[in-house]
Simulated assay, not measured.
Amino acid sequence: MITIDWPLLAIGLGAGAVAAALFFAGLGLGMRLALRTAHPLAVLLPSAALRIALLLAAGWWVATLGAVALLGFALAFFVVRLVLVAVLRPAQEGEAWN
């Protein structure tokens, strides 16, 4: 029987949720700033590099805790991404929020 270290999974889930929230908040801020400047590449490249580096560092730290924590981290990241995309996507023509 496989045993799951639930506290370690919770740490991974929490770290993944925080990392995803910060990652996508940084993406939104970077896009907002890039759209207001004459040279968007000067904003987008450093923004992407910083977000990716911080996400990798957080993932590396969680991976040192164990595979269960890393699984929780990845799961939380993708769930937060799925929720954000579903909530923030523009409504299609003829579609309205109830």
Rank of each mutant, 00 (worst) to 15 (best):
A96H: 15
G94F: 03
A17H: 02
L88R: 09
L55Q: 12
G16L: 03
A57F: 08
L54V: 11
F77P: 03
L13R: 02
A91G: 11
G66M: 02
A42W: 09
L45G: 09
L8C: 00
G14K: 05
A34V: 04
W6F: 14
A48Q: 09
V18I: 12
L88Y: 10
V68T: 14
V62K: 02
I2C: 01
M31R: 09
L13Y: 00
L56E: 07
I2S: 05
V62S: 04
D5S: 11
D5V: 00
G16D: 04
V87H: 04
A91D: 11
A76I: 00
A57Q: 05
A67I: 07
V68K: 05
A63K: 05
F78Q: 10
T3P: 08
L8E: 15
L55H: 05
G59R: 02
V68E: 11
L9S: 05
R51S: 13
A57H: 03
A19P: 05
I2P: 11
A49M: 08
N98W: 07
G66Y: 04
L41G: 14
A19H: 04
T37K: 10
L35V: 10
A34R: 00
A76V: 00
R51W: 11
A63I: 01
A25Y: 13
G30S: 12
G59S: 09
G66P: 03
A67Y: 08
L55W: 10
L75A: 15
A58T: 09
F73S: 02
A58Q: 05
A74P: 07
R51K: 13
A67L: 12
A58S: 09
M1E: 08
A19F: 01
W97E: 11
L65P: 07
F24P: 04
G28P: 05
I11C: 08
P7G: 06
G59V: 00
A86K: 09
N98C: 09
W61L: 14
L65S: 01
I2H: 12
A96P: 00
A74L: 14
P7Q: 06
A19E: 06
